[in-house]
Amino acid sequence: MRAHHLTLTALAIVAGLSLTACQNGDDGTGQSAPSSPAGAASSGGSSSGASDQGGGTGGAGKGSTGSAGSTGSTGSTGSTGSTGKGSGSTTGSGGSAKAGRCHTDALQITAKDDTISGDPDGTVVVELKNHSGQACTISGYAGVDLKTNSGTVSAKRTGQQATQAVLKSGQSIDFPINYPLNTTGGSGVRITGLLVTPPNETKTVALAWPGAASLPVTDGSGEPVKVGPVGSAGQGG
């Protein structure tokens, strides 16, 4: 009986060893299996790098520097670089965006006599030139006052419809001032200066008066000094 028991025990040990060997063989197979997906992942990284090369030169340069794993990461950076380029185009398209109002400090304001011989009225043209370095919009009537030895004379609007203009840096726009000529033979009301306030602004610029020396003396029933909207005397560049 003892011999039979020992035989059974030996068989059990042999069977256990065989089972262990089989299990070890399965583990080995399991360890070698991931090598194929790892190779695929490496291939994927390289493919991502190639896509970045197509998308932009910056992405391609960075992808060629790193390893397969870092190439995939750099590819993502290359995509971000493309977004940055879009942001750059937004900055570039700033010129087409709505420009802000032309402020007094952004305008170089000058005045010149533009009276045509034979006209019943005198004409002074005021030029507003944008020197701000960026585009701005302007529309409406400027405030115009003539300084005289008898006080200030404010110009009346002509009533013409005003249109909006966009002035690029360096461009200018004009408006006219029409005033009655003194043909009475007397000294009249002597004009000593011109005050101009650009449309929708509160800051005023004082200029020398370039027109005739005086206005006719009037009791208020004569022709007033008139101002047209910006753009009604022509636009220059």
Rank of each mutant, 00 (worst) to 15 (best):
D114K: 15
G39S: 14
G58R: 08
T71P: 01
P37Q: 07
G28Q: 12
Q23T: 15
A12C: 14
D219S: 07
L194Y: 12
P34H: 14
I173F: 03
E201N: 11
P224S: 05
Q108K: 15
L207C: 02
S232K: 08
P199N: 04
L8Y: 04
E223L: 02
G95T: 08
T29K: 05
L195H: 09
P224A: 05
M1F: 01
D174P: 00
D119F: 05
V189D: 08
T192D: 07
S232V: 04
G237D: 10
V196W: 02
D119V: 01
G188V: 14
I138P: 02
S70E: 10
I109N: 10
A15Y: 02
K156A: 06
L128D: 04
R190S: 00
S87G: 12
N149T: 14
A213F: 00
R101Y: 07
T152R: 06
A10T: 09
K147L: 12
G193K: 13
S232P: 02
S51R: 04
S172V: 12
S51I: 13
S93A: 01
K129P: 05
A15H: 01
S35K: 05
K203G: 03
T90R: 11
D27C: 14
N182H: 02
P229D: 12
A212W: 09
Q160V: 12
A213K: 11
S187Y: 11
V125R: 08
A41Q: 10
N24A: 15
Q164F: 05
A155L: 07
Q23N: 15
G75I: 03
Y141I: 01
D114S: 15
A213H: 03
T104Y: 00
Q53Y: 13
G118H: 10
S89F: 02
G88C: 09
D27W: 13
P37L: 10
P224V: 04
G75Y: 06
G133F: 03
G28L: 13
Q23E: 15
Q161A: 12
S150I: 09
W209M: 03
G45N: 08
L194A: 01
Q23P: 13
S169Y: 10
L207H: 06
A155H: 05
N178H: 06
A233F: 00
S82C: 11
N149M: 05
Q108S: 14
A33N: 03
S32I: 13
F175G: 04
K156S: 10
G69N: 07
G49C: 12
G55K: 13
G140E: 04
L17D: 09
S214E: 02
V217P: 02
G231Q: 02
G66S: 14
P199I: 04
S36Q: 12
T104F: 00
Y179W: 02
A21T: 15
T110D: 05
G159S: 09
T7M: 08
D121T: 11
S221T: 03
G55E: 14
K203R: 03
